[in-house]
């Protein structure tokens, strides 16, 4: 769906929010995402415990027991093998997930939209080469390639972002390429060109505003994937490294205690599912409002 000119005004922007708000599931997911963002930002203030505080034994009904301790009023998600509070660790890890989701999609948009515009606007050999490259990139086993990239660069927050951008841009390039091709031939672009507008002006003033809706949808719909990929990379030891918190890392640590302390694996995973679900619902809501024809 193409945004009409008036939609670009502030009135248009406000009405998009209002329309998003009207769908119950989207409204709930938006509130949840705001809460997640606040939790992520304020984790040090909100967390009930110090996420690194170790508790090696605890007295229960006159008996000494060792961690991992099960969920209780004191430790909502239980503790890990060192007695550290999993709920507090999860709150810190949410920040990492959100940062990854936003920065990876930001990078993907820069690379993907840039290459897509280039291929769509410069047909011939440039377009052919770019699109064949996307074909090949889409065939790669993304997770293993991302692992190899973080192995090359040394696993850390920034290299995880680079690796995930590197494996995720082709989808967006394909989308933008198709959209640009359609608009390039439209009357108003032809008219603008005949009036002497240069390529840069045409792209900035005519093409980009008209493909803004699918780009926004693609940005949002890709966030859950980026968050899950980061968790996967960290789970296998090719992502975030301790002491930086990550949901994938907590699940990886919990794997060894799955039979004696299932909460250790289950709660961080459920948190991950909740984050991903919220962004999926937001994405669907955005499609309904901005891009209903793509459904």
């Amino acid at each position: 769906m193409i945004l009409s000119r008036t939609d670009k005004s502030d009135v248009g922007r406000i009405s998009v929010l209002v329309r998003l708000w009207r769908s119950k599931s989207t409204a709930v997911s938006m509130v949840f995402i705001v809460i997640l963002a606040v939790v992520g930002l304020l984790a040090p203030v909100i967390a009930p415990k110090d996420p690194t505080a170790i508790e090696i034994f605890r007295e229960v009904e006159g008996e000494m027991i060792n961690p991992p301790f099960p969920p209780s009023a004191e430790n909502w998600f239980g503790t890990d093998q060192l007695g550290r509070d999993i709920f507090s660790r999860v709150l810190y890890a949410i920040r990492t997930s959100l940062v990854i989701g936003l920065l990876v999609r930001g990078g993907v948009m820069i690379v993907g939209v840039g290459l897509g515009l280039m291929a769509g606007y410069l047909p011939g050999i440039v377009a052919k080469a770019t699109m064949r490259l996307t074909d090949v990139m889409l065939a790669f086993p993304a997770l293993i390639i991302a692992m190899a990239v973080t192995a090359i660069l040394g696993p850390s927050l920034s290299t995880v972002i680079i690796a995930l951008v590197l494996v995720s841009w082709p989808d967006v390039t394909r989308l933008v390429y198709g959209q640009t091709l359609g608009i390039r031939a439209s009357d108003y672009v032809v008219a603008a060109r005949s009036l002497g507008a240069n390529n840069f002006r045409i792209i900035a003033k005519h093409i980009l505003p008209n493909i803004a809706s699918p780009i926004i949808v693609a940005f949002s719909m890709g966030i859950p994937g980026a968050i899950m990929y980061e968790a996967g990379l960290s789970f296998f030891g090719f992502g975030i490294q301790p002491p930086m918190p990550s949901l994938g890392l907590i699940i990886s640590d919990g794997r060894g205690y799955m039979t004696v302390a299932p909460w250790y694996t289950i709660f961080p995973g459920l948190t991950l599912v909740a984050i991903v679900l919220a962004f999926n619902f937001l994405g669907e809501g955005l499609i309904d409002v901005l891009d209903p024809r793509s459904k």
């Binding site: 899950m228 699940i251 991950l272 599912v273």
Partner: peptide, 17 residues
């Protein structure tokens, strides 16, 4: 929707458990 929102490695651990 739920099935699409679960990371594969975590789903594998749950089913294994």
């Amino acid at each position: 929707v739920l099935s699409l929102s679960m990371p594969l490695f975590w789903l594998a651990l749950l089913l294994q458990l």
